[in-house]
Nucleic acid binder design. Sequence first.
DNA 1: GGAATTTATTACCATACATCAATTTTATAA
DNA 2: TTATAAAATTGATGTATGGTAATAAATTCC
Lengths: 193, 193
Amino acid sequence: MISDNSVIKDIFKDLDFNDSEIKIIESVFKKLSIEKGTKLLNAGDLADRQYYILKGCLRAYHVDTHGKEHTVQFGIKDWWISDYTAFFSNEKAIMNIEAIQNSIIYSISKEGKDELYTKIPKIDKFFRIKLEKAFATFQKRILANLAQSAKERYIDFITTYPNIEKSVKNYHIASYLGITTESLSRIRKDLSK
Amino acid sequence: MISDNSVIKDIFKDLDFNDSEIKIIESVFKKLSIEKGTKLLNAGDLADRQYYILKGCLRAYHVDTHGKEHTVQFGIKDWWISDYTAFFSNEKAIMNIEAIQNSIIYSISKEGKDELYTKIPKIDKFFRIKLEKAFATFQKRILANLAQSAKERYIDFITTYPNIEKSVKNYHIASYLGITTESLSRIRKDLSK
DNA sequence: GGAATTTATTACCATACATCAATTTTATAA
DNA sequence: TTATAAAATTGATGTATGGTAATAAATTCC
């Protein structure tokens, strides 16, 4: 009963489902192949979708009133990405999401997810645990922003995400670390000594 | 069947439970009255408990290698507090949790929570939604730290938490905003003009 | 209420990072 | 491969916030 579009194997690795459950799951996920530069969400739109990244790299960023970009999240293999604030509360997005590499993703709507929660109770636990991990990651990031210098945060970044570092622009990293690209450049120079 | 210790009414306002469920819930929550200054968690300890705040104010903070405190979260009425990173992954805490006012809280252990999840499925959804809201709050905070000046963050803080502002020390607020108490003092002076 | 302690403010100077502008390097595309 | 655009680096200077130290104000406690 597993179709060639094996969302089950990709996303729900450790869980077992019966045929009808598989049918439901496959009906709510859309597999997409997107090109580098593709925007999946624009600020102001309704953020009614969440994305699972099978391959490639995406980023979620906010553009402030001065036109400056701030990267809130990078999404790589096996991560989920969305404007969560907007997604969870059915509000307009304040973030933009774009592919910074050619990527393969699974897309699910808020309704689709609600359908999963209702019809397949064990999915609830699956997403709760994902959310707990993401929450812990965010808590660590808040702490890093409070306690560490830009250089320390950059070192942490390249150790934690050695793969991301190769595929994203420096100005993406800078906007994630909360510094300018010039400052990042100076940090890199300093570290290369 | 509702005991005088009405945790159900306090925490699970909108949910209905049968007698046996109420029994389970009341068995896993401990209601505590704690004095200002009480530490509920010390860095290095196992963070195996999560707390619901019925009354009062708590804070979760990290002490970095230079001895500086960084407040990651304030907990007020109807909020939950814990070292989530440690709690979710069964690791040693890197945070401390203390009451900064006399408070009344409900305490639940990780095992207790797991018991709830297993025996009362609808609890799963309840906590998932709480977590989604907390997650959104954290996302907003990350963005604020990236995009806003200290003064802007302080203004946001006192507008968002007018009640907290009265009950916490300025150095608690400063350590939450990621600035020194001297800088906060200057910001306050500037705003009072 | 007054002494002791904690917390907040202020002044002066230091520093991390930002801004602006120019230049070099790297990537893209004809 | 060369032309063009995009990205990264560098230098000079500005600014927000930090550090230190002294003082003032507010709490706490006897």
